[in-house]
Amino acid sequence: MPIPAKAFQRWLHGVAPDASTSDVCRAAGIKRSTLAQQLVRGKVAGATVVSISRAYNINPVSALAQFDSFRQLADVAPQPTRAELVSQISTPDLLRALLLRSVAGAAGPECTSGGGGAGPGVHGRTAPVLEPPPHATSVRDWVEAIDDGELRHRVSAATGIAPQNYSAQLTANRLTPELAIATALAAGVGAAGGLVATGLITGAEAGWPPGARQEALDTMTDGELTTLAGERLQTLGRALRRQEHDQERTDKIWENLG
């Protein structure tokens, strides 16, 4: 599943033939001990390859694509769907957009969204720059954005991961790179999308056009945006309630047994 040490060494030799391990680590900002450990175990993390490729100005996606477990990344990726792009906008950003629209709606009779092609910050009023992915629930939101109802089923059939383990990763806002790619393949979307949602690579590195998320947001109708924001808030509220409930319970335990 992960990158074998041998393949990594071969790749590294191609990338930086003359650099010593410590040079590479310094340039990439990884701890030497971390890399050494990964090499000893024979499993190199995808994040390691990403950091090194960035340090040597290589596109991380094409670097990853050279390894067997990531070879799907080499395929020509379809552009991200609108749902995918919107899923990578954080809830606070969505809410801000919603508020801005209602302010605009109150000011003028017609809500002026749209303005295609404009990147963040170009709009006069919809100015606030969107936070780059990942956000606090980006992994789950991404999977939900591409889920046709049977996706989790297909992923677990394809990879052999137990559905509850898959859900646990989504809840923790994590997904291993291999699973992220498998999920994208099972949904028929660009293979790199999940890596953006997990924060392994940036949207630009995955080939998402600049400002694509803002554009996607702008094309949403008020109804769509409000519904989506409502769903996000509801999920967030449930998670917060659960946390508060757990906190109350642990407080009670320590009150009595601490």
Binding site: P92, L236, L240, Q247
Partner: peptide, 9 residues
């Protein structure tokens, strides 16, 4: 501290 909530960034 209280556990991080997902509103925090």
């Amino acid at each position: 501290p209280r556990p991080k909530t997902s509103t925090e960034k």
